[in-house]
Write a protein that binds this DNA or RNA. Structure first.
Lengths: 225, 225
DNA sequence: CTCCCACCATGCGTCTGCTGATCGTCGAGG
DNA sequence: CCTCGACGATCAGCAGACGCATGGTGGGAG
């Protein structure tokens, strides 16, 4: 589990880092607000432990900025203030939990675990055409209940066709999206891969799920064949 | 928003009830543990505010019982104790937040709102995939009833995979979350550690719990293999 | 010192992606 | 209806990528 600590007091930051590493976390530290926001933006942390009083950019602003960008990484706020309204503010801003300094490390750990447990993973929709389904997150394809193994290329071809199910998709489009934008090779690869796909996803005695549109490209049947 | 307050001190219970009703909540009160558990089982609340020291049945037991029944209603725990381990215990048991008496009503409100905003989601304190379980707090892994010893690295790899069970996880992701963010070494370490894990957590005659998704990474079987 | 853990390097077997050639099929025009 | 050309399908084969096992190295804890 990868954490970011944003804390300007170097001693506190180091102590936290050591303790959390000892607990098996992967830990990075930012010593001021702007660095913290930058790191949080550039990387994907499982949670952020963030001081409120920071040089350059307060913890509040960091949370605000992240939430404005639809970044819902769990944030656990630390503060030396003891005014109760600060806490209310932090939670209403979208912090996930709040600790007042001085706090005990054990409590920090427990709260961190609680926050991690909640997780943040908006699951992308599962694509479906008839009984043919594709789950991009799990990288899994099924016909009904039986799992179908696809190679990476086959998978991304099918994903592209399923996202445009019912539309005729030109080979040029396919080449651009499934292969590289400036792919220089033979367009015959597409035919080859459509062939592979059909062998794996078609059911016997049914028409092809991937239909040929002569002269135009291919189209995935909305009902999945 | 419908709340349940479980609190044996009548004055405190009444004060809370009044305050929360004034804030627009629908509030019910139980004055002891068994009543509280009963009400929580029979009704569907948006959140429960629960004292720890209760006649008949402690707050811990109530949470434990609810969680065991897969009831993930958010629970906010109140306690007069100030021992830090109590708090850690409560959170690890599956409470969603914790306040030490005496607390301010404003803070209670803010935390309640935070808890409500998160909504109800399954968030067991112990990760489980089939009969494979991992307890982050205890750092313990079991297959059924038999404990499995893992080294720290193995443990955090398995933890990360279990938190994303069912999803294909790329090696880059794994490297970033389980190893250091700017780890410069060979991705081969992952393969090595997946190998170690498999040797320890797989049961004979079953398929791998950690499945290889060629070209994409690894995926932990939701049923634990 | 010894043990254990994290990591590295190597080698091997398998799978993927792609090519080039051949074979099949569709459909327009005679 | 038949012919022919263009388009699409299929196949074998190969180079390289990928995943995995294994043994070895180094460093830290006991």
């Amino acid at each position: 589990m990868r954490l970011l600590i944003v804390e300007d007091e170097a001693r506190m930051a180091t102590a936290l880092q050591r303790g959390l590493i000892a607990e098996g976390f992967t830990v990075e530290v930012a010593l001021n607000g702007p660095d913290g926001l930058h790191l949080a933006r550039e990387n994907s942390y499982d949670a952020i432990v963030c001081d409120i009083m920071l040089p350059g950019l307060s913890g509040y602003r960091i949370i605000e900025a992240l939430r404005a960008e639809q970044n819902w990484v769990p944030v656990l706020v630390l503060s030396a203030k003891d005014g109760e309204y600060d806490e209310a503010d932090a939670l209403d801003l979208g912090a996930d939990d709040y600790l007042v300094k001085p706090f005990s490390f054990v409590v920090l750990l427990a709260r961190l675990r609680a926050v991690l447990r909640r997780g943040v993973r908006p699951r992308p929709a599962i694509l479906a055409c008839g009984d043919l389904t594709l789950d991009p997150a799990a990288r899994a394809v099924r016909r009904g209940d039986t799992e179908i193994e696809l190679t990476p290329r086959e998978f991304s071809l099918l994903e592209y066709l399923m996202r445009r199910a019912g539309d005729a998709v030109s080979k040029a489009d396919i080449l651009h999206h499934v292969w590289d934008a400036h792919y220089e090779g033979d367009a015959n690869v597409i035919e080859v891969y459509v062939g592979y796909l059909r062998r794996k996803i078609d059911q016997p005695f049914n028409r092809h799920a991937v239909q040929t549109v002569r002269g135009a490209g291919y189209r995935l049947a909305v009902d999945g064949g």
